[in-house]
Design a binder for these strands. Structure first.
Length: 281
DNA sequence: TGCCAGGCTTCAC
DNA sequence: GTGAAGCATGGC
């Protein structure tokens, strides 16, 4: 990674295998949004980062070097070699080769486990724009405000805050029947019954079962939380798009063993590519 | 205006 | 254990 300092408070980086649009549209995050000027704003915790593509694989980030090194570098998983994972794709697998090429700028972000749990619970049977809208409403109503150059923003609400709401109150955030699920997850997390921090060290199977113990969390949501909130890179969430690809292309079974250690990345390539093929990208 | 969505729980059988 | 019904609501 090539690193220089431009104007004060702005870092210019050369990043490989990094495409903001692809990451924003890959369905893993709902608070990375394109601004009117074509740049992107990433909200994480009580932080906001503006990233602008400069062309030629170069990007301008409106943060200092220290903040980049201590937070955003890991957040965007910039120390991982996604090119190596793409090159490991079976050359005889035309579909996957094309999928990996089409989504070559996708990275698995390291997002907050609680935010991922709550977000993917409310994502079920919602379209991506509706998910973004519901998340934004939750943040505005219950998130802690913080200042940015562009004005006041709101952090994702803490579990304690949502646990203190009634199900009816949460229902006003376009959660529909999922309000009771979000409320249950908030209570379990706030009380410590679900120890998300402690589960960071648990085996994949233990983590999966713990997540599925939450009301409203099944295999798919739990897998998303594992991949996007705990960076468990072998998690392979199966949604309608993945099932479509598996049914059409991998009737004899998907070669998970071949991609051990980065099945989650492969899953993202398929998700992003399959939506494109079906006109939803 | 209708249709349908990064699924899950519940309830028959 | 398996399969089908039912679910709330926003965005296209």
């Amino acid at each position: 990674m090539y690193l220089t300092v431009g104007e004060i408070g702005v870092l210019e980086l050369e990043l490989r295998d990094f495409d903001l649009k692809q990451i924003a549209d890959s369905g893993q995050c709902f608070r990375l949004n394109r601004a009117a000027d074509g740049s992107y704003n990433a909200d994480a915790g009580e932080r906001r980062l503006n990233i602008r593509g400069l062309g030629g694989g170069r990007f301008a980030l409106d943060c200092g070097r220290e903040e980049f090194e201590t937070f955003w570098r890991a957040y965007f998983d910039l120390d991982a070699d996604y090119g190596a994972w793409r090159r490991a794709v079976d050359a005889e697998d035309d579909y996957l080769t094309q999928a990996a090429e089409y989504g070559s700028g996708i990275r698995i972000l390291r997002q907050d486990p609680w935010e991922m749990l709550c977000t993917f619970i409310l994502s079920q049977r919602k379209k991506i724009p509706a998910i973004k809208s519901a998340v934004e409403t939750l943040c505005r109503k219950y998130g802690k405000p913080f200042e940015t150059d562009g004005g006041i923003r709101f952090a994702f609400p803490a579990p304690e805050r949502l646990a203190g709401c009634t199900v009816e109150e949460l229902g006003t955030c376009a959660l529909g029947y999922r309000a009771k699920y979000v409320h249950a997850a908030a209570r379990m997390t706030a009380s410590g019954e679900l120890d998300l921090a402690g589960l960071g060290k648990a085996e994949d199977e233990v983590l999966l079962e713990a997540l599925k113990g939450v009301y409203g969390v099944g295999d798919k949501v739990a897998s998303c939380v594992m991949l996007f909130g705990f960076h468990r890179m072998d998690a392979f969430p199966k949604d309608v798009w993945i099932y479509k690809a598996l049914d059409a292309r991998y009737r004899d079974g998907f070669p998970y063993d071949r991609y051990r250690g980065f099945n989650g990345v492969i899953q993202q390539y398929i998700f992003y590519y399959q939506r494109f093929l079906d006109g939803q990208g």
